[in-house]
C-alpha cells in the first residue's frame, strides 16, 4: 500500500499528490512514468512522474480528472493509500549534449514538461518554456516553470492568461526572432504535439514528443500502447514514452486513443453519480 502524503488542487480539474514510494523514488528520472491502481478492483492507469525526492522516498504525480479512475483517485485524501504503484517505467528523457532547449507544454501535460525543464535547467542547459492552457483558471506550475527557465511564455486560448493564441504561435515567433534550439521537447494533447512537430520540421529542429497512450501492464507485454514511428511499430511503455516527433504517426495515435472513449465517458458518469449518492 502506498500512502498519499500530500494532496493539493492545482486547478478545478488538476490535482497533485505526493506518494510514499521509496523504491520508485530511488530510481525515478524525468520522463519516466508509473502505473497505479486506486483499489483492489481498480483499473491500471499510467501517469508520468512529475517530481520525486529520493531521500524522502516520495514520488509526485499530477493528474487531470478525466475518467472514472482519476475521479476515484481525486476522492482519496492525505493519509489514505493507493493499492498499487509500480515504476519507474519507460526510458528517461535524454539530456546529453543539449545546450539550448525549448520545452513546449500544453494543459496537464505541463505537469510532465516541468520536471524535464527543471532537470535541463539544473544541468546548465538554457531552457525556454512555452506553456499553453485554455484559460486562466487552468494554469498550473507557473512559478515553477519561471524558476526553471530563462525565458517563459504563457499562452491561453481566450487570452485570459499570458498572450492569446497557441503554443505553436509563440514557438514560431521565438524561432523567427532568431532563437536557435538544438531540441524542442513537447508534452501535451496529441493534436498540439502534432502541430508543434509540423512546425519544427519546417525549421529542421530535432523534436521529441512524450506519448501517453492506452496501456495496461507498462512492461511491454500487452502491446496496447503501440504506435507507428518512422513506419515501424513501437511500444510507448518500453521504447518510449518519448519519440522523435517528426516520425510519429499522430493521426493513428489519436484514433487509437479514442478507442474506449464511449466506455470511459459512461464509466466516469457512473462514478460521479456514485460519489453524489454517497454525499
Amino acid at each position: 500500500m502506498f500512502e498519499i502524503l500530500e494532496k493539493r488542487s492545482l486547478n478545478p480539474t488538476v490535482t497533485l499528490m505526493k506518494i510514499a514510494a521509496p523504491k520508485v523514488a530511488k530510481k525515478a528520472e524525468p520522463g519516466q512514468f508509473i502505473i497505479l491502481r486506486t483499489d483492489e478492483n481498480g483499473e491500471r492507469i499510467p501517469l508520468t512522474i512529475a517530481d520525486f525526492d529520493r531521500s524522502a522516498g516520495t514520488v509526485t504525480i499530477i493528474f487531470q480528472i478525466v475518467g472514472a479512475t482519476t475521479e476515484k483517485l481525486n476522492h482519496l485524501n492525505e493519509g489514505e493509500c493507493l493499492h498499487d504503484f509500480v515504476g519507474p517505467l519507460g526510458r528517461a528523457t535524454e539530456t546529453e549534449g543539449l545546450k539550448k532547449v525549448a520545452v513546449v507544454g500544453g494543459g496537464v501535460g505541463c505537469a510532465i514538461a516541468y520536471p524535464v525543464a527543471k532537470k535541463l535547467h539544473d544541468l546548465g542547459v538554457e531552457v525556454h518554456s512555452i506553456v499553453g492552457f485554455r484559460n486562466q483558471d487552468l494554469v498550473i506550475l507557473e512559478d515553477e516553470f519561471k524558476a526553471a527557465s530563462s525565458k517563459f511564455v504563457l499562452m491561453s486560448d481566450d487570452g485570459s492568461a499570458g498572450e492569446k493564441g497557441l503554443v505553436t504561435d509563440a514557438l514560431k515567433k521565438l524561432i523567427e526572432s532568431g532563437e536557435k534550439y538544438d531540441r524542442v521537447i513537447t508534452i501535451g494533447p496529441l493534436i498540439m504535439m502534432k502541430f508543434v512537430c509540423q512546425l519544427t520540421k519546417q525549421y529542421e529542429i530535432p523534436t521529441v514528443a512524450s506519448m501517453n497512450p492506452i496501456m495496461i501492464d507498462g512492461t511491454g507485454m500487452c502491446g496496447g500502447c503501440r504506435l507507428t514511428v518512422g513506419g515501424e511499430t513501437k511500444f510507448a511503455c518500453v521504447d518510449g514514452p518519448e519519440f522523435d516527433g517528426h516520425l510519429i504517426d499522430f493521426d493513428e495515435a489519436m484514433a487509437r486513443g479514442a478507442m474506449y472513449k464511449p466506455f470511459e465517458r459512461k464509466a466516469h458518469e457512473e462514478t460521479c453519480n456514485l460519489f453524489k449518492e454517497v454525499k
Binding site: 478492483n41 507485454m221 500487452c222 496496447g224 503501440r226 487509437r256 470511459e264
Partner: peptide
C-alpha cells in the same frame, strides 16, 4: 495492424483475465 479494434492476444487476454473486463462492473474496458 494498429487500427482500433486490433489487439495482441496478450492485451485481449490481460484485459479479460487479469483486469476482469468480462465482468459488468469492471473498471477496465
Amino acid at each position: 495492424e494498429n487500427l482500433s479494434g486490433v489487439y495482441s492476444a496478450n492485451e485481449f487476454l490481460t484485459r479479460i483475465n487479469l483486469m476482469k473486463a468480462y465482468k459488468e462492473d469492471s473498471t477496465t474496458p
